[in-house]
Design a protein around this nucleic acid. Structure first.
Lengths: 122, 122, 122, 122
DNA sequence: GTGGTCTAGACCACT
DNA sequence: GTGGTCTAGACCACC
């Protein structure tokens, strides 16, 4: 995985795990891969992964069972809320950016529809 | 101005100049501030600004006149085309990102409308 | 190498590289010496060579591979076209110069033949 | 007039005057414009023109009459020889340059004919 | 070791 | 004062 040089890597790993939850790659009550495995896959130090997972635990998205490992929260509402907030964050960031260009809502909505319909976006 | 560590600064300056053209801060045939002045404002070396402006000149957005300075192109179509492509690029980037999350068009369009209407985005 | 004071050095380096391509010293798909080495050979700053090569890359004559170095384009037609245009440019420049002296075609062609045959030119 | 930065200006002025003789702008036995006038036209110091004219005098192309000014030599053979040598010098310089590119006589002659016929050279 | 970017500071031509 | 070029020297990512 390619990381952004500006954001702490553990944050970016948190985001990636959230993404996997959102798209259903990691589903409720499922076991999360062990730290070492993730560390290798991400190409980072295990400590960095450890930190990311701890943070996610603090947020209530992960729970750790002493010996068995770490699992995705069984709290379905929590997962649903995650999906919603992540989506809204992305949308808000986008809106903020386009507002820097002074574009009106209509312009953006129109362009989005065009781009989505013709499948030009890749 | 604050620069992203991942993208070359001269590219980001190009983008910023383009933004200023798009929002009409720099309008057709208008004089662009001198290299040294922009360099101070951006907090970078004059060479870096020089490079950014040269690239924009190559793209036909700017023209430089030996001793008088640099000017925004008088080619109105060029400017109009810029506005269009910049908008599309932003939209495409956004679409690409949200597709990583597997969201459907409807979800995104709905969320965008919500966020735009309630003005929660800032 | 000795540079002309009227033309930017990076342009003259571009011309020299083109010359080496034309005479086959640098041939298609071959590796070009690294920037720093060329800089030493030309007796100029690496940045100046960098610029020359970047321009040639933009012209499609060179391609750069991140860590491996720069290579002459594999586009054989491109190379062939280069040879043609360089030759024509030289000839045109010569014709322009002699026209300043009002010489007729016949005079020039005759003199050229003489000079070429007797091998007086060196 | 635009001067080359590498060659002494007085040499370039000599060449320009020779050119004017060759094309017949200055014809045999004609009076040469006064130093001051030439200096203004060339945009250089009168001393520089003075030196150029003195050199031309040494070469026997100009003669100075104490009070009347300077004149083009009446020696018709001298003028004819000038035309010949100037032409040969230009041709030789051209041949030397093209030989750096390894082009054969035929290639050059062919290209020259093409370029002359279609009048592409300007 | 490779290309790519950036800074700091200088000089030049042109007006 | 303007754009353009150049040098010297540095740092980075990639392999």
């Amino acid at each position: 995985m390619k990381f952004d040089a500006n954001l702490p890597i553990y944050i970016q790993i948190m985001d990636e795990i959230k993404r996997r939850i959102v798209i259903g790659e990691y589903t409720s009550a499922q076991k999360v891969p062990p730290v070492r495995e993730l560390a290798v896959n991400f190409g980072v130090n295990p400590n960095t992964v450890q930190r990311a997972l701890s943070e996610l635990e603090r947020e209530g998205l992960l729970v750790s069972e002493r010996t068995a490992g770490r699992f995705i929260s069984e709290d379905v509402e929590k997962i649903a809320a995650l999906k919603k907030t992540v989506c809204e964050q992305k949308v808000d960031a986008f809106i903020k950016e386009i507002q820097q260009y002074g574009w009106s809502e209509e312009e953006i909505m129109t362009t989005m529809k065009e781009r989505l319909q013709y499948g030009k976006a890749d």
